[in-house]
Design a protein around this nucleic acid. Sequence first.
DNA 1: TATTGTGAAACCTTTCACAGCG
DNA 2: CGCTGTGAAAGGTTTCACAATA
Lengths: 253, 253
Amino acid sequence: MATGRTHRPATRSRGIPEATVARLPLYLRALTALSERSVPTVSSEELAAAAGVNSAKLRKDFSYLGSYGTRGVGYDVEYLVYQISRELGLTQDWPVVIVGIGNLGAALANYGGFASRGFRVAALIDADPAMAGKPVAGIPVQHTDDLERIIRDNGVSIGVIATPAGAAQQVCDRLVGAGVTSILNFAPTVLNVPDGVDVRKVDLSIELQILAFHEQRKAGEEAAADAGVAAAAARRESAEQGPDGDVPAVMPA
Amino acid sequence: MATGRTHRPATRSRGIPEATVARLPLYLRALTALSERSVPTVSSEELAAAAGVNSAKLRKDFSYLGSYGTRGVGYDVEYLVYQISRELGLTQDWPVVIVGIGNLGAALANYGGFASRGFRVAALIDADPAMAGKPVAGIPVQHTDDLERIIRDNGVSIGVIATPAGAAQQVCDRLVGAGVTSILNFAPTVLNVPDGVDVRKVDLSIELQILAFHEQRKAGEEAAADAGVAAAAARRESAEQGPDGDVPAVMPA
DNA sequence: TATTGTGAAACCTTTCACAGCG
DNA sequence: CGCTGTGAAAGGTTTCACAATA
């Protein structure tokens, strides 16, 4: 995920691993909660528990940012909040546009977490002329015709796509054409973008399918445990999947 | 993500890598599209392009499932659709409940991708008594009081949490108590679950923060490119991460 | 003394490159 | 001949375990 820019200049030591970057927001959230409770310092053990990771990983992650802790004591909460915010680029304001104001787009527009961390919903855009002018989450919806102008007028570099799958690539192309270089895609489709543009995708159906895989595995193990591992496994093996032949009706739709 | 179950029994060769599992839904989607266009076979190169990965990765992924291709020809589309569906556990029907019918919950209930792939929204649950009985996406909302009964009556093992962060852990505990063993969490909070329960999280704010990180980095590199890479990089090196002090404004906006 | 910061080991994932096969 | 399937190499991530130190 989040590919683009394959030819990293491999510049110096500043390469924070992607896995670490993906966890920084988690740490930041936990730290913000501590900060609100006026907790002055926190150990890697405590913070890791709050963020749902283990402490070795957290310390390693922080080591990429610098030496911000104090041995024997822990980390200064406020200081870390600032350092991580800066590292993530949250000390500045990021205007974002949301394209596709259906159920999901509207939910996103209303989502408080957006505004709270440096992101500002600069505009809502939809292709339906009937929606134009209607306010959603207090922001008037604008028509797709004006997409390029809206992007440029607001200096938007981050776009959120919440359109139907069929419209996503076209919307993506127009966003990129107008200068957007980061896209959060909720449409269940693969987006093609030029180098230098980052795409992250959120796909509800994919997440559920991954859960189903594990759920199925659990059910299998359970059954196996009930009746002697090898026997049960073998039984299901043959019952459920014949040699192959008759591909039974593949999913309704 | 999706931790839980640390003590994998390491059963036989059936251990499909997690990274592969996460891509199977992607392949499945691409294959389904081909199937609808009645394309009979597809090469790893073509399918990989459609799924947005490279062909070596795809072939390696498929090799964990078995030898389902034909050298010199490619893969049989229908057959692969069936094999992947089965591997993911989509040949059976998974009843899911959605808890928290706010904007997001309603959007999820209306999301077509749910129903289309073996998942059936068995119930919608909300804590607001005023919502009880109201239909959302054609399904009447039920009150949280009945959560346990609903889970059991419907044999639900997958739950979706779309409540505010403050309610999520409590809802999670009740879901797990009632027998749910897979949770898709949209609330921006860390969920604690017992071993054997899988949690996957979808967090809009985290995705945006990751994009912001890369966006910021691009802005920095751009600036560097303007003025002679090495020199600029060296300059930023010393300016930006001195002791800490003055963080130079990166990118006007 | 309690806790960080980090080399080194273990593990997982991706990519390469080509033998094997239809 | 063309394309799959896969060992082996390369690269990335997590965990271990302990020296360094406030």
